[in-house]
């Protein structure tokens, strides 16, 4: 019978309906009449073939065959003859193995710093968590911190993970503790590395991360490459003081043979204390002007539904075992459960364990179709990161300002239809 993937969402507006997939952000628009016909077929438990046979007009039959193919293409319908794959495998598990750090970056969303904080777990406790992670076969495991390489047992942990895990193992580090004596073993144990740099030279990097970091990181990159290891990303968090260096940052990465990642600044952790300094209030860039340079087809193609996987496809396990939806939703109110309470991290067990915490409820309330945006017909296109909603949900003025700046244009982008091409009559 015809049934949609559990991550599918429908939005009705006037005589049009959008069916989209939160898993990949893709969507398709059809008339309400078509949707209602399809819905009738679904409610009756019809198969695709049975539904097609209910259509008397051959054009309609062809149209719905085409629609089914498109819905299959965006994973809303299962491949023909196969049951729906409501895949609940974790895509990405972050494991912060310490909250200590040897740097004290001014924008750190984790508030990690030297001389304070804790490792949280013993080596054996960490092994136990790694066993649980490996058992549920996530696509990607990222070891992070704090600065993970500060732990005395860091290489023991990495080797233990590598021996048991065949997926993609990545390391998120500040890159200052890589040296000629440990680079070879590091390069053998991980698949990729993400090093924070936040600048293009000593001055710009030191402003954010402290003196001497720039040279140390570029040296670490060279050491890794000397070992034949090239899957290296360098990241920069975009703040007022380095925004003008973005192009240079891309050029630097090209020269170094690394991949550039530019992230938006999140005012949480130490970043919250520094937010007025790092990103003082700007007039919001005119959304209409920003989007006005592009044609409708391009904008609709680019505008995906919210695919945020926080708590659904990805989680962060903190140094003390607390589990959060992602690295940016690490406040107590979003704690989903503790890894120490779980026999396994498999989805169904995980979801049951979360029931005794309020984190899931608070996370659900951030989703645009559950929040104060629930009646808006572009809500799932307006937010791409639930942490943005978290920052704004209690600030009525800022929330309304953001909404006002984009809602009209977003409605126009999502719900408009291209002008029909005039037929030439000969």
């Amino acid at each position: 019978m015809i049934s949609f993937h559990k991550e599918s969402r429908t939005i009705e507006h006037g005589n049009r309906v959008i069916i989209g997939n939160l898993k990949n952000g893709q969507w398709i628009k059809l008339s309400k009449e078509c949707y209602q016909a399809l819905k009738q077929g679904m409610d009756l438990g019809l198969t695709e073939e049975q539904f097609i046979n209910c259509l008397e007009d051959p054009d309609d039959q062809n149209y719905f065959k085409q629609l089914f193919e498109k819905l299959r293409y965006i994973d809303i319908l299962a491949p023909q003859g196969k049951p729906p794959q409501n895949n609940s495998r974790w895509k990405h598990i972050y494991f912060a193995i310490t909250n200590r750090c040897n740097l004290s970056c001014i924008h750190c969303c984790y508030n990690a710093k030297s001389g304070a904080g804790a490792d949280g777990m013993t080596t054996d406790e960490l092994f136990s968590v790694i066993d649980k992670i490996v058992q549920c076969s996530p696509e990607i495991v990222t070891i992070s911190g704090g600065e993970p390489m500060l732990r005395k047992d860091f290489f023991e942990i990495l080797a233990y993970t590598r021996q048991r895990y065949e997926g993609k193992l990545t390391l998120s580090t500040n890159g200052t503790l890589i040296h000629s004596r440990n680079v070879r073993i590091l390069a053998r144990l991980i698949d990729s590395i993400d090093i924070s740099l936040d600048g293009v030279d000593e001055a710009s990097c030191a402003y954010i991360r402290g003196p001497g970091v720039f040279d140390k990181v570029t040296e670490s990159v060279r050491l890794l490459q000397k070992e034949g290891f090239y899957k290296i990303s360098l990241s920069m968090v975009s703040v007022d003081q380095n925004k003008h260096l973005e192009e240079q940052f891309h050029l630097l990465n090209k020269e170094l043979g690394t991949r550039a990642i530019v992230r938006h600044f999140s005012p949480i952790g130490r970043g919250y204390i520094q937010k007025d300094h790092l990103s003082p209030f700007h007039e919001i860039q005119d959304f209409e002007t920003a989007t006005g340079r592009f044609d409708l087809e391009f904008l609709q193609s680019a505008a995906s539904m919210c695919t945020c996987g926080a708590g659904k496809k990805e989680i962060l396990i903190d140094y003390d075992g607390s589990i959060y939806p992602c690295g940016l939703l690490i406040q107590d109110r979003y704690k989903l459960c503790s890894v120490h309470e779980l026999e396994t991290l498999r989805h169904e067990v995980f979801e049951r364990s979360c029931a005794s915490y309020s984190g899931t409820k608070h996370l659900d309330e951030l989703w645009p179709d559950h929040s104060k945006c629930k009646d808006c017909k572009v809500n799932l296109f307006c937010w791409s990161c639930l942490q943005h909603m978290d920052m704004l949900k209690d600030d009525e003025e800022a929330f309304n300002r953001r909404c006002k700046s984009r809602k009209k244009q977003l409605y126009s982008i999502i719900w408009s239809e291209p002008e029909p091409v005039p037929q030439i009559i000969r």
Binding site: N15, R16, G20, G25, Q26, W27, I28, K29, L30, S31, K32, E33, C34, A37, Q40, G41, L44, L46, F51, C54, L55, E56, D57, D60, Y63, Q66, L67, K70, Y73, I74, Q300, S301, A302, A303, S304, M305, E417, P418, P420
Partner: peptide, 19 residues
């Protein structure tokens, strides 16, 4: 049994968006 004689309102181009 469901019987649909003719759909009168169709968006002719069923394009996938949001890629």
């Amino acid at each position: 049994m469901l019987k649909i004689v003719k759909i009168t309102d169709k968006i002719e181009k069923l394009d996938v968006k949001g890629q």
